[in-house]
Computed example of a mutant assay.
Amino acid sequence: MNGSGFQPETFRFLGELAANNTRDWFEAHKADYLRFVRDPADAVRGRLVETLSRLCGHDLTSKQFRINRDLRFSRDKTPYNTHVRMAFWPQDTAFQGKDAQPPSFFLSVEADHVRTGAGCMRFSKPVLGSFLQTLETDNGDDIGDLIAHMTAAGFEMSAPDLAKVPRGFPADHPRSGLARHKGLAVWRDVSDIGSLQGANGHEAIARLFEPALPFWRWLMTLHAHRT
Rank of each mutant, 00 (worst) to 15 (best):
T137W: 06
R45N: 13
H149G: 09
N2D: 13
Q91M: 09
A224S: 15
R167Y: 07
S158M: 12
F26K: 03
R175Y: 09
M86W: 05
A118R: 02
R23G: 01
G140P: 06
G144D: 14
F6P: 06
Q133R: 14
F95D: 04
H58V: 02
K77C: 03
H113D: 01
E110R: 11
L219P: 01
A204T: 13
K164T: 11
F13R: 07
R115F: 00
T51G: 07
D42Q: 14
T227H: 13
F6Q: 02
E9P: 00
E210Q: 15
F88T: 00
S62L: 00
G15D: 07
V165R: 04
S53C: 07
A152I: 03
D42A: 13
D59L: 07
I147K: 06
L71R: 09
F88N: 02
R54A: 13
M86V: 02
G201K: 05
A212N: 06
A185D: 00
M1S: 15
R38V: 01
R85K: 09
V114S: 00
D138E: 15
H173V: 05
F106M: 12
E136N: 11
T134N: 14
G194K: 10
L34D: 15
P103D: 11
I147Q: 07
L60R: 00
P126R: 09
R226G: 06
T51D: 13
F123G: 05
V84S: 01
N81I: 03
R175E: 06
P8N: 11
L184K: 01
S74T: 11
W89S: 02
R23H: 11
T82M: 00
A31K: 14
R38I: 03
N68C: 09
Y80H: 13
I193F: 04
D24I: 08
P174C: 05
M157S: 05
